[in-house]
Amino acid sequence: MTGTLGQAERKPRLRPWLAQLRLLEKLRNLAGALLPPLITIAALLLLWQILCGQEGSSLPPPTKVVKDTWELIRDPFFDNGGTDVGLFWQILASLKRVAIGFSLAAVSGIALGVLIGQSSFAYRGLDPIFQVLRTVPPLAWLPISLAAFKDTNPSAIFVIYITAIWPIILNTAVGVRQIPEDYRNIARVLRLNGWEYFIKIMLPASVPYMFTGLRIGVGLSWLAIVAAEMLVGGVGIGFFIWDGWNSSLLSEIILALIYVGIIGFLLDRIIGFIGRLIAGRPI
């Protein structure tokens, strides 16, 4: 009797104590994850400040970048018409082009990848062509697409498309070709038809490979859009950077570069996240 009483008395005192310990533990883990990048960033900013802070430096130091671009940082949503719009709209315009070009590349890239992964005739026929075409730099496609589409926006989208499609095709093909013979045999014993085989075996078996291709593809298309927009003009983060160069607004260019980097990072993570959701396992 006394034993149980004693336990009952101890428990409430013990619990908040344990909870506190756990909270501390969590905080320590969080600090462990956040502190190293924060310290590195601070050190780099300091270095930048020291290097560019002197009189007559060709590039602005971070303090000047923030001071010069404060209006842009504070209000990314302004719209004065034409290309004089906030950074939100500039980035949105670029993302729209990437979304269209990349989606088209994803659909046709996966289809072509499945084709050359499944059929060795298609593989032998198409693989050499793909291997040559994929080494063509994205911007080299721009003049041809401008000639073909006679308009800047579809040309920029085409450049995205042609940049993103190769890693999607090639990785999907590898994913399909590595499907173990056993899975094919299971499909044959169960007499799965082509569609059932595609949905129930090929897709889940090759999804990690597809998403590797999609991740590389989205990264490349974000690289290409900035370059393409510099040439074709209009609203978009690429032309914003080019415009900044022409008007000698170096601080604006640096701010835009930071945004481009962050968006590229987020795109990569979003595709990785979707891949994990679909595959049900880390990719």
Binding site: D182, Y183, N185, I186, V189, K200, I201, P204, A205
Partner: peptide
């Protein structure tokens, strides 16, 4: 092949997902 002759393969060949 057909399901009237079910095969158990040496390396189980279950679908891992």
């Amino acid at each position: 092949p057909g399901p009237d002759r079910a095969v158990v393969f040496q390396n189980h060949s279950l679908l891992p997902w």
